[in-house]
Computed example of a mutant assay.
Amino acid sequence: MTKQFSSVWLREPRQPKASGLHRDQIVEAAVALLDAEGLEALSMRKIGAKLGAGATSLYWYVANKEELLELALDEFWGMVETPESDDAPWREVLTTFAYNFRATMRAHPWSAGLVGRLPSMGPKALRVTDRLRRAYYSAGFRGIDIYMASGTVLCFVLGQVTPEIAWTKAYGDAEFDTEGALEMMDRVAEDYPEIRADYRATTPTDAATARAMAFDFGLLCVLDGLEARLRGVPGS
């Protein structure tokens, strides 16, 4: 059974009614609420109250909450900066994108629940996609490989940042209990002395620094891998 594809981007925005409310105002209020209370707290009723309007009046502009989330997701993509100049080397473009994508996700953690679940087909998302496409093309990727390479970098960032967001949601700004973690490892990994030794030697005292180091290492490996693949393609 085929699920019918629907999106807010498949129809023209409706003109404002006499109340003067605009769709942009609704999206701005939604992003502010998402930042303050998270994805689970978003409701049309809360958005209406924030704007001094009834929830039913919002449905003139967006058919449902999913459409509103699509619009908010596009606003998110508009916050992810990438170098605009085509003279910038491809690795510089992708590195800048990856770091800014990570920072923007951390600043707006609700985005982790939307990227990949909703279509990113708005004007701001497409602008980012086009800029990344040009970077991959300049590197030497062609055809579907452009989007395969882009998806690889995208998934790396998502895979790194989503656990960070989950940890922050669960524990807030609490410091990582290094000693407690080491004691637990000594108990549960008694039969694996090498792992215990590695854990004691490598467990960081500062979790934020450890995450940044892991991101640096992983991103370099991904970009090195893409570059190695290019070198192995005839004519690249």
Results as ranks from 00 to 15, higher is better:
Y61N: 12
L71H: 05
V161H: 05
S6L: 10
S138M: 06
V233A: 12
T104D: 04
G232L: 07
K169T: 07
L73W: 00
M79H: 06
S120P: 06
L34I: 06
S57P: 02
M213F: 12
F215K: 12
L223S: 09
D145N: 13
M105Q: 02
A18W: 00
K46R: 07
R134Q: 04
A208L: 10
A30Y: 03
G20D: 14
K17Y: 02
A208V: 05
G218C: 12
E164M: 03
V188F: 12
T178D: 15
E81W: 15
E28Q: 11
V93D: 06
A32N: 01
E190F: 02
A53C: 00
A112S: 09
L94E: 05
E28R: 05
L158H: 04
W167P: 11
C155F: 00
A181W: 10
G48E: 00
Y61G: 04
A201V: 03
A88P: 04
A149M: 05
S7L: 08
T168D: 01
A181N: 05
N64T: 11
G38T: 01
A197M: 04
S150P: 01
W110M: 12
T202I: 09
T56F: 00
K169A: 06
P193C: 15
A63W: 07
A212H: 14
I195D: 07
A149T: 10
H108A: 03
R131P: 15
I26A: 12
Y147H: 05
D216Q: 11
Y136S: 15
E227W: 08
R106I: 13
Q15P: 14
G143L: 04
P83Q: 07
M105E: 01
V188W: 10
R23T: 15
R23G: 12
M184F: 14
A41G: 03
F5W: 07
M44W: 00
G232N: 11
S85T: 12
E183D: 10
V62L: 03
D130F: 07
R23K: 01
E190N: 04
L51P: 08
L10W: 09
E194Q: 03
A228I: 09
L126S: 04
D216A: 08
E92M: 15
S7F: 07
